[in-house]
């Protein structure tokens, strides 16, 4: 599992970090984000690249689990 902590980062940085991991061939990625736009954007990117996305919310942090 490849882990990305993108909390506190503004768009497009969370997507860029996710994209870099995908481009390196990662098939299972956990992305932590803490605002609605990155949740939506990372989900959008992942789904359009063939990943299944599972979302769990814990306080301010949203954990996105990306699986291919």
């Amino acid at each position: 599992m490849f882990k990305i902590d993108a909390r506190g980062l503004a768009c497009p940085e969370p997507v860029v970090l996710t994209m870099n991991a995908v481009n390196k061939g990662e098939k299972e990625i956990e992305v932590l984000v803490d605002a609605m736009p990155p949740v939506e954007n990372v989900t959008r990117y992942a789904k359009n690249n063939g990943f299944e996305v599972t979302k769990t919310v814990d306080g301010n942090t949203t954990k996105l689990l990306l699986k291919k």
Binding site: C11, Y45, N48
Partner: peptide
Amino acid sequence: FANMGMIPAGDY
């Protein structure tokens, strides 16, 4: 780019 998740917070 929108399909790639390149959407600014202002859009939301």
